[in-house]
């Protein structure tokens, strides 16, 4: 009797787990279908296309002719722009991502403090998330008529830029020129950095708010200075969010569609219709992103501290 009951219960548990599994799959079925049809299939297809010469067939459809590594060879050895733009993009990333992180971390520390009008300031900082997306960035330089004039304006207004003056002073020195150049480049880009760090600020801010004040209190009583408690409490407590933000920033940087590199890809796609070469270009790009993300998250996740 008892044995039967146990067996029955076991059976019931098993069927519950199975029911859960089925329900789970039903719930995520949109993802599965969408992933297979609109991501996995195109991804594989584009990988295949990068080894082919794709030419349209009269009537309808396309013809794929295997051409091996020809496209890859072309973009790396013949194309004058590809490697240059790719390297520039990577160099920019190496500068941007740390700046954005430091900036957003700093801002979230500031915004976490009590002061008048905090809600307003937060709202302002978050505004770029909405306003700077998509087409809004770089609209002024996007059309042929205005881009030429932009340089003219810049030439015309020389001497008014503080950073330019500062740069000329600092660069007269013999040492550390490269360092100053980098710093000035970052300062000049502060607008782009500020508008790219909206989401990161919010994520950091939410992390800061989960740290309980009693920790700081205890530290202060033990004689900890603000500086020390920053490095010993604040920093470790939100280190997991640093990982999230690093990944988010890198992805955001690479997938934004207004960079020169993306323009080149779009041009090759929409004007030259060279589908094979475009696929090769974007696959190299994608592979690099994956590698960078892998390395970065591996390095950071080892240092992340989880508080439970």
């Amino acid at each position: 009797m008892a044995e039967q009951k146990i067996r029955k219960r076991k059976k019931k548990q098993k069927s519950l787990a199975r029911g859960n599994a089925i329900a789970g799959y039903l719930f995520i079925s949109p993802l599965i279908i969408g992933f297979l049809l609109f991501l996995a299939y195109p991804l594989i297809q584009s990988f295949y296309m990068s080894f082919c010469t794709v030419s349209p067939v009269a009537g309808h459809g396309f013809e794929f002719v295997w051409s091996g590594l020809a496209h890859y060879r072309h973009i790396f050895t013949v194309d004058p722009d590809y490697t240059r733009l790719l390297l520039e993009e990577l160099q920019k990333m190496a500068l941007y991502v740390p700046s954005i992180l430091v900036f957003s971390f700093f801002m979230s520390l500031l915004l976490n403090q009590e002061f008048k009008g905090r809600t307003f300031v937060r709202a302002v900082y978050f505004l770029p998330v909405i306003l700077s997306s998509g087409v809004m960035v770089g609209l002024e330089t996007n059309n042929a008529l205005l881009s030429g004039v932009q340089d003219l304006i810049q030439e015309d207004t020389n001497g008014t830029s503080i950073t330019a003056t500062l740069e000329s002073i600092l660069l007269q020195g013999e040492t550390g020129n490269k360092f100053f150049e980098t710093i000035i480049q970052i300062v000049d880009e502060v607008y782009n950095i500020a508008i790219a760090s909206g989401i990161q600020i919010i994520i950091f801010l939410s992390g800061l708010q989960t740290i309980s004040p009693s920790m700081y209190e205890a530290a202060t009583i033990e004689g900890c200075t603000g500086w020390e408690s920053f490095w010993k409490i604040t920093f470790p407590m939100i280190s997991s969010l640093i990982l999230v933000n690093v990944i988010y920033t890198i992805v955001d940087f690479f997938t934004k569609s207004d960079s020169e590199f993306m323009d080149m890809i779009n041009e090759t796609l929409l004007q030259n219709f060279n589908y094979g070469r475009v696929s090769a270009m974007s696959w190299v790009y994608f592979a690099i992103i994956i590698v960078i993300l892998g390395i970065v998250s591996l390095i950071i996740s080892k240092r992340v501290y989880y508080y439970d």
Binding site: L39, P42, L43, S257, N266, Y275, I290
Partner: peptide, 16 residues
């Protein structure tokens, strides 16, 4: 889905 840049898959999608 988050990290694949749309440029990588747009061509096959277009043809598809």
């Amino acid at each position: 889905l988050i990290i694949v840049p749309p440029q990588t898959i747009i061509t096959p999608l277009y043809l598809y």
